[in-house]
Amino acid sequence: MKALKWWLAVLSVAALPVHAADFKLGYINVERIYREAGASIAIYKRLDKEFADRREDMKKMEARAKELETLLGKNSLPQEDRKRYEREYASLDRDYRAKSREIAEDYNQRRNEEFAGVTERANRLVKEIAAREQYDLILQDAVYINPKFDLTPQVLKELDK
């Protein structure tokens, strides 16, 4: 879908008359906005706090798994203890994988929820900039853009107001 949008944008630019010197093009790096905007940084900090306890639980599980690996690596371990540790390790591994997926899914969902507002505000600002400065086309995805067309710093500045 992104490729189709990109090609349509390229075709629309290519269809412009060569003498259209007043054509104004801009570019927005959305990933950079998500990384650098003050609101984005605040979201990441908030999410880190929100998920800190769950990540700490995961670290405890990792530590216990390492302990079990060390115990299982000993040749002098009685067979009964070895089987018990192997069962515990298998159970721990299963729980760890399930919790890891759950945390990743929950984190992505929360991040998407939080960034919906940033995206909406950034899009509104881009439209305002486009209208105010009379841009004909503003792209979000491209393989290469000359830095002179990059409006990202301007959008970041206005987002942080």
Rank of each mutant, 00 (worst) to 15 (best):
R124A: 15
Q154K: 14
V30K: 01
D141W: 08
L47C: 08
I103G: 03
P153A: 02
D106S: 14
A98Q: 03
L92Q: 01
V13P: 12
D106P: 15
N108V: 09
L156F: 15
D141R: 02
R94Q: 13
D53N: 07
E69N: 06
G26K: 00
V126G: 02
S91V: 14
R82W: 12
I129P: 00
A130E: 05
T70Q: 09
R124N: 13
K45F: 11
A39E: 11
A42Q: 15
I103C: 06
I129K: 03
D22K: 11
A15C: 09
L16Y: 05
P147S: 03
K24F: 14
L11H: 06
D93P: 04
H19C: 07
K24G: 09
D160K: 04
E133C: 14
R64G: 08
I138H: 03
Q79H: 10
F23I: 09
P17W: 01
K45M: 14
N123W: 10
Y44F: 12
I103Q: 04
N75R: 06
E62G: 02
A20Y: 13
R121K: 13
V155A: 02
A90Q: 07
L92I: 13
V126I: 15
D22N: 13
A52E: 03
E114Q: 12
G38R: 07
D48H: 03
A130S: 10
A52M: 04
F23H: 04
M58A: 04
S12E: 04
A39V: 10
L71K: 01
V10N: 04
R121Y: 13
K99L: 11
L137H: 11
M58L: 05
Y89M: 07
E50T: 08
P17F: 04
Y85L: 09
K66P: 00
K49R: 08
D160C: 10
Y89A: 02
P17A: 01
A142N: 05
K24R: 14
D48G: 10
A52H: 01
K45G: 13
E102S: 08
Q154A: 12
K66H: 05
I28W: 01
K148F: 14
